[in-house]
Design a protein around this nucleic acid. Structure first.
Lengths: 342, 342
DNA sequence: TTGTATGCGTTATCAC
DNA sequence: GTGATAACGCATACAA
């Protein structure tokens, strides 16, 4: 409401003096500064971020993009914790967050939306379909806009990404199953396009190979990170391979779906079959049986990602590189040695 | 990057003509308009929202505030679905969302932060401690800033709120338990200050009274919406009142905590004791046993709230009034007739 | 140490 | 229909 101009008038100085006084410039008399600050407080003055960012080209705002499927992002249990970290770390550093929700402009792209809103950088959390908008991503990578993504391999001078060590995570899980005595281990994978799914698949294969076990494509199905599709995949899998004794589902949501369907089909988990998830969402520990899973350190992913972004924003010459966060195997009740161990 | 000025130069017209052409004013020649739009596209021009809002005083941005406890808001399963609706409805109407995360400014209040960022209105989701900042809320209510809150009775010319019908919801749950045959019904309430908790407590009482049952303060405990506190409250409750056959916990998180503790103590749910929750979060259906609960229509709450807010923003003379959303009783496996029914 | 002048990108009020 | 011009609130280069 009140502006720098009013303060100037009341203080009997020029607006530039007020501006300098309020921005802690050294070249302003202590007394005039005091007077100005005093008046500013009386007037309950706060500078207009809008006007300021128009001239400084800095908004102290970070844009947030969620995947374009309905309700993704907010509803996804994994991304929530990431966001929680972003919120905390960005806030502590003086940034606010702008969620792009108005996506109905005709030819708008990530890049144009960022320029339009004047955000300092962009935080991308894309799921499924979102990842396929390649033209837009290429434009973004070349735009020079500081940008960081979760689980999406961005590559540009000022773009980077954060992901879990999906390869080692999956490998760890399968190695654990092997150590328990399992030999016929199936995979409910994600999709056949994303790097994340790809890395987890490879981790699964690597563990098998390392143990001298055969990799059998027949034991690999895809659930697209959906509980329902995982149920179908699981049912098909076990009906065609009744000797499977363990399953790695590469998301907890899929693992829980798999357990549900297995139970319906008369399989007991972990007595008849072991199931391992991926993510360690809250339901993993409250599920019955509680879920052995590969924990992604979501908070750390979020905080590392936002730090990377802020550093990129604040240092024009900084060239970010990808950050890989270790996973941890959390053993709970959904895994056990196979029933008919030799 | 490219501005209205460049377009003007390329088109050989003045900036004001460009502005009018791009904003669909009628008083501009069809040919010049076409030419201007053409050039704008070639230059990949998008108007600066910052500059525009500086002059129009409209940002098409809605401020979002979460409770001030660490991680509240994003982590709270209830608010998430509300936000999902806000995101969708606001986006469709052309608004973006600004999350206030930078709360470290010395004397900043809701009001000053809103003015500083130039948001058109404020969406408040406060929990626990957040609700106690009364001075700030009073200032906000009197500020004239359009504002809507969830579960928080705001009252100002341009302020309002949305809540569930907590009274009827709780009453419905208890009446159902009574219908099942329960007579000794306990309440794990929220807190002793908020309207929400108060309404649910009164719904509980009303159901008892309507059925001719005595209201026994000994059967009322408080869990502050925390699983841990609900566990403690439950343990104390049942150890002091071993004849309790049913519990209404006024949040699912508390109900699930209560069930866990009861199980640890050797009580079987629902065989020995019935438990009803409130909210219907996702875990309610996946919990073992699945939870009978009072569903809050979260999506509807969010969409009604944001509609109310947008209407208040867009019509200066509009005076919003509170919206109350009905609850629905969802019967699942955590309730049954009492074991020793007369 | 302070004031003047200019500009950020846009819309709005006038004249013409 | 169109073009100057001012204004929004602030920061800053330059003069004084």
């Amino acid at each position: 409401m009140s502006s720098i101009k009013e303060i100037a008038k009341k203080a009997g100085v020029s607006v530039s003096t007020v501006s300098r006084a309020l921005n802690n410039y050294t070249d302003v008399n202590q007394n005039t500064r005091k007077k100005i600050i005093q008046i500013a407080q009386e007037l309950n003055y706060f500078p207009s971020a809008v006007a300021r960012s128009l001239v400084t080209k800095r908004s102290y705002t970070i844009g947030l993009f969620f995947g374009d499927q309905v309700n993704s992002g907010f509803d996804h249990p994994f991304f929530l914790e990431v966001l929680s970290a972003v919120r905390k770390v960005a806030g502590d550093a003086g940034y606010d967050l702008l969620i792009f929700t108005n996506l109905h402009k005709k030819k708008a792209t990530y890049t144009t939306l960022c320029r339009e809103r004047g955000v300092d950088g962009l935080f991308l959390i894309l799921t499924g379909d979102g990842k396929r908008k390649n033209e837009q991503l290429i434009e973004l990578q070349e735009s020079g806009i500081p940008c960081v993504a979760i689980d999406l391999p961005l590559d540009g001078e000022r773009c980077s990404y954060v992901e879990s060590n999906n390869f080692l995570g999956a490998k760890k899980a399968v190695s654990y199953l092997i150590k328990l005595g399992h030999r016929k281990i199936a995979l409910i994978g994600g999709d056949e396009v994303g790097k994340v799914s790809f890395d987890r698949l490879n981790g699964y294969r690597a563990a098998l190979i390392e143990a001298g076990l055969e990799y059998d494509p027949q034991l690999v199905r895809y659930g697209c990170y959906s509980a329902d599709q995982a149920k179908e995949a699981t049912e098909a899998l076990v009906s065609e391979n009744r000797d499977v004794t363990a399953i790695l589902a590469v998301s907890d949501v899929m693992a829980i779906g798999a357990i549900q369907r297995l139970t319906e089909l008369g399989w007991s988990v972990p007595d008849d079959i072991s199931v391992v998830g991926f993510d360690d969402i809250r339901e993993a520990s409250t599920n019955k049986p509680s879920l052995t899973t590969v924990r992604q350190c979501k908070y750390e992913m979020g905080s590392e990602a936002i730090r990377l972004l802020m550093k990129t924003i604040e240092d024009v010459s900084y060239r970010p590189s990808p950050v890989v966060i270790p996973c941890e195997l959390i053993v709970r009740d959904s895994t056990a040695p196979p029933r008919f161990q030799k």
